[in-house]
Nucleic acid binder design. Structure first.
Lengths: 242, 242
DNA sequence: CGAGGGATTGAAGAGTGTCAAAGAGAGTGG
DNA sequence: CCACTCTCTTTGACACTCTTCAATCCCTCG
């Protein structure tokens, strides 16, 4: 059973990709090979739970997720913690710290994952030699700002259940964009991480998922999700059903 | 009384400034005069309630707030609405829409205000001729991403009262950065806008302010705020008091 | 096989939201 | 200049969602 599921949703990490995508805002086209000529890319593997970088460490590079998935975490002085996003294949990590001496957040692998390290000085040099690199980064950052604001809209206007529905639709859309099934997938993050991101408690998330299951909008068993009624989810998330 | 207050907190809009600051992340230094040589800046006045631009209109320019204040609003397909930020003198507006054909949100004046329009094609040209312009915009965008994430941390981890306390401290800090009093200021936005931004209802914001008043952390009368106990506010907002 | 973390579910309580009413200012028109 | 209107704000009472605390179950990993 578990093996079957894995086969159905496993990511073909070896498949080459030519898009540099960021967050949830569609692919940002850039010729990876051209970039590679100017920027030495180091492959970095991370075990589940391991960090790419932590807040306070010197900012030296940005990262491109190659396989697996990561969470970004914001930390407060008094110990409060907040998951601010999840990154998967094609997402850029670390751009939020551009302009700072040190990284502003933590990035932690949710599973065994791999990211490519792009030393920032080399990226800056590439901006001068490779057309569009600078513009792409700018647009990617703008997309990330928009992304954050659309999550604000969700937090501010949707109740718990609807928030969870919106989250599932977003996850499904991201899988679809990567070429995987939007109808059947495995959540990479724990209920606790999901709850933190959604500004809820993990029990509330669990209950919301159970209720979506009861409504036959989805079928959920621990981290495995099957979407049964996309329109039901959409109307719940406040998205036009057409 | 009202006149006295106005005098105490009025903004000397005529005072020239040499910093291009964005959002809440400190000033981004840039030589405005040098920029002006390459970018024609049109002064745009907006009456209270009037919009600079609305979601869906063609993206043609970014704006630099010169006087007054604005709110940015995100809109959902089903009519839900969310205030995502407040902008004041020195803040850049419109950068979130870079890379799009149309603006992604609404920007509305909270009072009679003035913004300088910077046509985006001219800004792009300036990037080629004026050193650092591109880098400044990139860093400003990165700062905006960080800013959004720190608000996420606040939403996700602070209860209503503490959220309001954090908001007041942030407003105070912004006034201080502009050279005004951090101890005595006028909120430019309605309780409803404040509540939307904080993901609360306006009655809850009103009650939270009343309670902060009862605790003698602040003194509030409609939109006029006096900060009496900064440390009290800070500890409530989860910020180190030292 | 046991240990431990993650997930689910229940019951009770706190914190916000909702609904309603009333007061205070600002702006308008007579 | 004053009365009037309208919006914004405040406050109360009550309802309800979400959180808290707790117990149980399940899966994974050593």
């Amino acid at each position: 059973m578990t093996a079957l599921v894995s086969a159905a949703v496993e990511m073909p990490a070896g498949k080459p990709y030519a898009l540099l995508a960021l967050a949830n805002d569609g692919g940002i086209g850039m010729d990876l090979e051209m970039l590679r000529q100017h920027v030495p890319m180091h492959r970095c593997k991370h075990a589940a739970g391991q960090g790419i970088y932590h807040a306070g460490q010197p900012f030296q590079a940005i990262y491109l997720v190659h396989a697996g998935s990561y969470k970004t975490c914001e930390l407060a002085e008094d110990g409060r913690e907040q998951v601010t996003g999840f990154r998967m294949r094609g997402d850029l990590i670390g751009v939020e710290s551009i302009g700072l001496k040190t990284y502003s957040c933590d990035v932690i692998a949710l599973e065994d994952s791999e990211a490519w390290e792009l030393p920032y000085p080399a990226v800056l040099r590439a901006c001068l030699h490779v057309p569009d690199v600078q513009a792409r980064i700018t647009e990617a950052l703008a997309a990330e700002v928009r992304n954050g604001r659309s999550w604000m809209l969700m937090f501010g206007t949707l109740a718990a259940e609807r928030r969870v529905a919106a989250f599932l639709l977003e996850v499904a859309a991201r899988y679809a964009r990567l070429g995987y099934s939007a109808r059947h997938f495995i959540l990479r993050m724990s209920r606790i991480d999901m709850a933190s991101f959604l500004a809820l408690k993990h029990e509330t998330v669990s209950r919301a998922l159970s209720r979506l299951d009861d409504l036959n909008y989805i079928n959920v068993q621990r981290r495995e999700v099957r979407v049964l009624d996309v329109d039901g989810l959409r109307s719940m998330a406040g998205v036009a059903v057409n």
